[in-house]
Design a protein around this nucleic acid. Structure first.
Length: 271
DNA sequence: ATGGCTGCTTTGAGCAGA
């Protein structure tokens, strides 16, 4: 069995829903995690998504943040849904997790941080520490885990169009990259870097200054895989096509292909 | 050059994003 699992920061699902439905149909993605839906649950377009053949779970709020997981109906239930980071009190809707076809899917919208001298940056670092500590337990409970979303961290200089200009700036600062490395140290692997990739590959481009046309971007939308899932990963790509559409999100979707045929059925559920 | 776009908001100029 092959699973195509993707992440996309849509920057308002209200605006981008038609693009999301078109993209699902074109790419035949099995699972899609969304960030920045920017809508309350009571107005979430559940019926439209279900009509397209997907189940969906979501956690939203007005104006900001908001996450969702879509899964092809044929994959069965979206099970054991959990909101947020257990033990970390946070009004901002940035995390939703669920089990789909025996894979634990954790969808995250990491805080942006605004600038390194901002209170929001301190919140970002606290949030990342809480994510790490919670995830350590989740990895024990769910050996087949994928952590995907908008990390708001460019892991390395090769993920930045102008590393000198971005040096020590938010999204690239040493403490943020150290927090990201701590996630990898839990036993997670950056799916994109499992494969040969073009140079200057990015997933976000500023709306201003013709950022996309000039490829002034960052790679901040990532798919991290546990070792068990990384063993079956056969591809990971950034799809730039939606960024070329009318009224695009500033982020492009990222998709990994997982071959699940070899895995043990027994490790599919919670321990 | 601290702006530049875009989406959102107790509809407006201000915020947040990255």
């Amino acid at each position: 069995m092959t699973l195509k699992i993707a992440t996309w920061n849509v920057n308002s699902l209200k605006v981008r829903l038609p693009q999301v439905l078109d993209w699902l149909a074109q790419q035949q993605a099995d699972v899609l995690c969304l960030q920045e839906t920017k809508m309350e649950d009571r107005v979430f377009p559940q019926a439209e998504i279900e009509a397209a053949g997907y189940r969906v779970v979501f956690a939203g709020q007005k104006t900001y943040n908001g996450v969702a997981i879509l899964a092809r109906r044929a994959l069965g239930d979206i099970a054991h849904v959990e909101h947020g980071i257990a033990g970390f009190v946070d009004e901002q809707q940035r995390v939703i997790s669920a089990s789909i076809a025996g894979v634990r899917v954790v969808c995250v919208y990491v805080p942006n941080g605004q600038s390194v001298d901002s209170d929001k940056y301190q919140y970002k670092l606290r949030w990342l520490a809480a994510l790490h500590d919670w995830l350590a337990g989740q990895m024990q409970q769910y050996p087949q885990l994928v952590l995907l979303g908008d990390y708001n961290i460019a892991p390395e200089d090769r993920d930045v169009h102008d590393p000198v200009a971005w040096r020590d700036k938010v999204l690239c600062s040493v403490p943020e990259r150290a927090a990201f490395q701590r996630l990898l140290d839990l036993g997670l692997v950056d799916a994109y870097r499992l494969f040969e990739q073009p140079e200057k590959s990015f997933s976000w481009w500023d709306y201003r200054m013709m950022g996309f046309r000039r490829n002034l971007g960052l790679r901040i939308d990532l798919i991290l895989l546990s070792r068990q899932l990384a063993a079956g990963c056969t591809a990971c790509v950034i799809d730039k096509a939606p960024r070329r559409l009318e009224r695009p999100s500033d982020h492009a979707p990222v998709m990994a292909t997982l071959d699940l045929s070899e895995r043990s059925e027994l490790s599919a559920g919670p321990a």
